[in-house]
Computed example of a mutant assay.
Amino acid sequence: MTRNKMLSRALFAVLSGAAAFGAQAADAPGFYAGVGAGQSFVDEGAYDDEDTAFSAFGGYQFNRYFGLEAGYADLGKLEPDAVGNALEASSVYFTAVGTLPFTEKFSGYAKAGMQRWDLDTAIPGLVGTRDDSGTDPTYGVGLQYRFNDSVALRGEYSRFEIEDVDADLAQLQVRFDF
């Protein structure tokens, strides 16, 4: 299955869920879910590349200022500058999200937490098996514009630490509140 098909199916599932569960006020506690697409970047050591990346996330907003979020990010395939193996990376993460409302519809947020990353090839120079995985911090910042009580557009920049390599992810996300 191609990434575009997977993204289309994920977006359809989230839209269907939003329609089925209805909407709630943006400042009220409740669940949310969303999807995102963008670019992943690596510029460290033998790696200086970018690729298309996708994400899916869900969380619980406790109040206007704080929530918890879990998600999955497919960071794509990152090629080395010279000889070496490409890194196909993905991450499952859990973060705390702090939100600062600027206006009724526009806010900024920061998130930090832990992630479980998975590579299908070990990072050159690091001890590991052919299938490398581990747990490291992740963090990010973003801006959110709320169209109505149930739909918001987010722009987010996140960092996923993977051993000694930092993978950055810039993306646009659509968030649906239930």
Rank of each mutant, 00 (worst) to 15 (best):
residue 1 M to G: 10
residue 5 K to M: 05
residue 7 L to W: 13
residue 8 S to C: 13
residue 9 R to M: 09
residue 12 F to Y: 14
residue 12 F to R: 15
residue 12 F to D: 15
residue 12 F to K: 13
residue 16 S to K: 01
residue 20 A to E: 08
residue 21 F to C: 04
residue 21 F to G: 01
residue 22 G to V: 05
residue 22 G to S: 05
residue 26 A to Q: 07
residue 26 A to L: 08
residue 29 P to A: 09
residue 30 G to F: 03
residue 31 F to H: 07
residue 32 Y to F: 02
residue 36 G to R: 03
residue 36 G to N: 07
residue 36 G to D: 06
residue 37 A to D: 01
residue 38 G to S: 04
residue 41 F to D: 04
residue 42 V to A: 07
residue 42 V to M: 04
residue 47 Y to S: 01
residue 49 D to F: 02
residue 49 D to K: 03
residue 50 E to D: 13
residue 53 A to M: 05
residue 54 F to I: 00
residue 56 A to D: 01
residue 57 F to N: 09
residue 63 N to D: 12
residue 63 N to I: 07
residue 65 Y to Q: 12
residue 65 Y to T: 08
residue 66 F to N: 10
residue 66 F to S: 14
residue 69 E to A: 00
residue 71 G to V: 02
residue 71 G to T: 02
residue 71 G to Q: 00
residue 72 Y to S: 12
residue 72 Y to N: 12
residue 76 G to P: 06
residue 77 K to Q: 15
residue 77 K to H: 14
residue 77 K to G: 11
residue 78 L to D: 00
residue 82 A to R: 13
residue 84 G to W: 05
residue 85 N to K: 08
residue 85 N to S: 06
residue 85 N to P: 10
residue 90 S to L: 04
residue 92 V to T: 15
residue 92 V to E: 09
residue 95 T to N: 02
residue 96 A to C: 11
residue 100 L to P: 09
residue 102 F to K: 11
residue 105 K to M: 06
residue 109 Y to G: 02
residue 110 A to W: 03
residue 111 K to D: 01
residue 112 A to S: 10
residue 113 G to F: 11
residue 114 M to S: 08
residue 115 Q to P: 12
residue 117 W to K: 08
residue 119 L to Q: 07
residue 119 L to P: 09
residue 119 L to V: 03
residue 120 D to R: 12
residue 120 D to M: 13
residue 123 I to Y: 04
residue 124 P to N: 04
residue 126 L to K: 11
residue 127 V to P: 12
residue 127 V to G: 10
residue 128 G to S: 10
residue 129 T to R: 11
residue 129 T to I: 14
residue 130 R to N: 14
residue 130 R to T: 11
residue 130 R to F: 11
residue 133 S to T: 14
residue 135 T to W: 08
residue 138 T to C: 15
residue 138 T to N: 14
residue 138 T to Y: 09
residue 138 T to V: 11
residue 141 V to R: 02
residue 141 V to E: 02
residue 142 G to I: 00
residue 143 L to I: 14
residue 143 L to H: 07
residue 144 Q to E: 10
residue 145 Y to E: 12
residue 145 Y to L: 11
residue 147 F to Q: 00
residue 148 N to I: 04
residue 152 A to F: 05
residue 153 L to M: 05
residue 156 E to W: 13
residue 156 E to A: 09
residue 157 Y to R: 13
residue 158 S to P: 00
residue 160 F to W: 10
residue 160 F to V: 13
residue 161 E to P: 03
residue 162 I to S: 09
residue 164 D to G: 05
residue 166 D to Y: 01
residue 167 A to T: 13
residue 168 D to N: 11
residue 168 D to Q: 11
residue 168 D to R: 12
residue 169 L to K: 09
residue 169 L to Q: 08
residue 171 Q to C: 11
residue 172 L to C: 01
residue 173 Q to F: 05
residue 173 Q to T: 03
